[in-house]
Amino acid sequence: MKTVLHSLLILVVLSFAGTGRAATPNPTEQIKPFVSKVVDQLKDPSFKKDTVDNRIDKIVTLVSERFDFEEMSKRVVGKPWQRLTLAQRQEFATLFAKLLGHVYIDKVDTYVAMKIEFGKEQLKGDRAEVKTMFVDATKSIPVSYVMILKGDKWMAYDVFVEGISLVRNYMEQFKGIQQDKLISTLEIKLQELKAESERKGATP
């Protein structure tokens, strides 16, 4: 009887344990393979030869695996975000992702030449910060990713380069732009960037 009760007790405990919250995934372990994938993509010789639009699409698709552009855009736009329609929010996030895509395609050689070292991480509830260091022969650039836990995935919504928050910097730039001009401003900027990238690509 005692053995049966004991077994039942263990069973009950185990079934409750099963419904409990799973252990929090490790943000550094999640971001490491992602960074490698981005570097591999940038190193791919065929990537460099592709058109600007294709390169942007490829890199945005890849980066979206670990970057939450809507969380990022929400912070960049600030209070006016609440007044945007769902479609406008999605459009802004898509355009903003493309803008950041230019950071990668225009600086391919810089990033590929650098070694990435992973450092400490900081956890606070569903938020985490993972510190990395981009190192080459002459300099070290500290880069950290600020992330939010969505389901079992850590998604980045801000990047600090040498202690400067990318989101806060864009926040300051969008402050002076009227709500109805947010999307058109991004569209114009992207056209300029595309023309500039194509001009650079055409220059031997």
């Binding site: 803008l99 230019h102 950071v103 225009d106 600086k107 040498e162 202690g163 400067i164 928050s165 806060r168 910097n169 864009y170 300051e172 730039q173 969008f174 402050k175 002076g176 732009i177 401003t185 991004l186 900027k189 960037l193 500039e196």
Partner: peptide, 23 residues
């Protein structure tokens, strides 16, 4: 690099200055 990716280079530089100084 900084200027190319900004919407308002003046605001970006001003914010960059303050963030960098605080850092």
């Amino acid at each position: 690099g900084l200027k190319q990716l900004t919407i308002d280079p003046y605001a970006a530089l001003r914010d960059g200055y303050f963030q960098s100084r605080a850092q």
